[in-house]
Amino acid sequence: MTDTLRVRVGRVEPLAAGIKRFTLQPCDGGALPAFDSGSHVVVHMDGGRLRNAYSLTSTLGEPGHYQIAVRLEEASRGGSRYMHEQVGEGDELHIGAPGNLFSLDHGAGRHLLIAGGIGITPFMTHIQALAARGAAFELHYCFRNARSTAFLDVLPATLQPGQLHLYESDSGTMLDLAALIAAQPADTHVYVCGPAPLNDAVVNAARAAGWDAGRIHFEQFRNEVDATGGAFEAVLQKSGLTLQVGADEPLLRAIEKAGIKVDCMCREGICGSCETTILEGQADHRDQYLSDAEKAAQKTMMLCVSRCKGQRLVLDL
């Protein structure tokens, strides 16, 4: 595979029920690319058939290895199950270079971090970066129960008193979002990563309190989207190719099979990196990136999850 890094799995260890940590080392014995807090890598599995993005949780500034934490999803589309059941110590994997869709705004006076379940992963590097700068921050971590929750053993020792707040729903401890948002100074930025209901609740609470969009940051670690549907024809005008996209085939996969490289970090209609101009036809938009007005305008589409409303699309690709 081109444009990927070859890594060997140095260690696999359980972090909690249904969560494993994988330590990835460079196959050539050299250094891996440096990364900023909040970064992720895309792991290519099963010969490239499966690709999932995972946040890096390792120590910043240590290029000898990467670490990722993978939760086995009950409704896995293949990626997390492959990692849990097929990948062991000594195996080789291909990964993309680190990317970052969830960076810190260093102009903020205070950072409010809110994690839900496995959404804790990008915050494991954020808290390192914020602590190193002496920045004002606190972490609010929501989870169902301690048995199935990662990093509960290390967070109390990592954070200062008053910086860590835990909410275990099975024990009846719940986060009061409205009160938390209302108590923040005017220079606070909020960051949330977790299931869609938590992300939506945080974003809506901040907006209702009058926060502008620049102070609200979120990362959706999972977007349950069906990228299949009716068959159609996709014309790639720049490449001079006409593709027949099958009913059970995502458009992006058909384009990649034709040998056309497309930047796509999330592959779930979230990050916007595969946004492409529509020259003719109308897209069946299934992403969470474009606004309703942008979708109605039919000027661009996300190749990873969206499809064609009719029989033919012409793309500027």
Rank of each mutant, 00 (worst) to 15 (best):
V12R: 11
L251G: 00
T59E: 15
P185R: 11
E13Q: 13
A186E: 05
Q184I: 06
R312Q: 07
A108T: 04
L101P: 01
R215M: 12
E13M: 06
A146H: 03
D248T: 11
T121V: 10
Q160L: 13
L164G: 01
K261F: 10
Q184C: 06
T23D: 09
A53D: 01
S103G: 14
S55L: 07
Q160H: 08
G61R: 05
S291A: 11
Q160F: 04
S37R: 08
I68F: 04
D284Y: 04
R6S: 14
T57D: 07
R253F: 06
D284H: 06
Y141R: 06
D3H: 15
V87R: 09
I114V: 15
D263Y: 04
G107C: 07
P161M: 06
T300W: 01
H94S: 12
G116D: 06
P63F: 06
Q244M: 10
T300M: 02
L175S: 05
T121N: 14
A69E: 00
G259C: 12
S273Q: 11
E233P: 01
A31C: 12
G109W: 04
H106D: 15
M301K: 08
G47S: 12
L15I: 10
R77D: 05
S239G: 07
A254I: 03
L93R: 05
S148L: 06
N204W: 04
P26Y: 05
A75R: 11
E268R: 14
Y191N: 06
I68S: 02
L164S: 01
K20N: 13
M45S: 14
A157V: 08
H44G: 06
F221Y: 09
Q244H: 14
D36H: 10
T188A: 15
I278S: 02
P33T: 14
L24P: 00
P250S: 11
R147W: 04
G269D: 03
G109L: 06
L72K: 05
A296H: 05
G172Q: 04
R8H: 10
P63K: 09
A131M: 10
S239N: 14
A182L: 11
D36Y: 09
R51W: 07
A227R: 07
A205Q: 04
T125N: 08
D36T: 11
I278M: 06
E268N: 14
V12A: 10
Y191D: 03
H106G: 12
K238Q: 09
H217D: 03
T173Q: 15
F221D: 00
L243D: 00
D36N: 15
E168P: 07
S273I: 04
I278V: 15
A179N: 08
K238Y: 00
F22A: 02
E233R: 14
G117N: 12
A136V: 09
L279W: 02
H140V: 01
F151M: 05
D46A: 13
A201K: 06
E268S: 13
K299L: 14
R110L: 11
A227T: 10
G269H: 01
N204Y: 02
Y289H: 15
W211S: 12
D91I: 10
D105P: 01
K261N: 08
Q288N: 10
V225A: 04
D187C: 08
H65D: 08
R8N: 04
E294K: 07
Q67E: 15
A254K: 03
Q67I: 08
A297S: 11
R71H: 14
N100Y: 04
V87D: 05
E85A: 15
T149F: 02
D46H: 08
A183W: 03
I278E: 02
A150Y: 00
I95W: 01
A296M: 09
D28M: 12
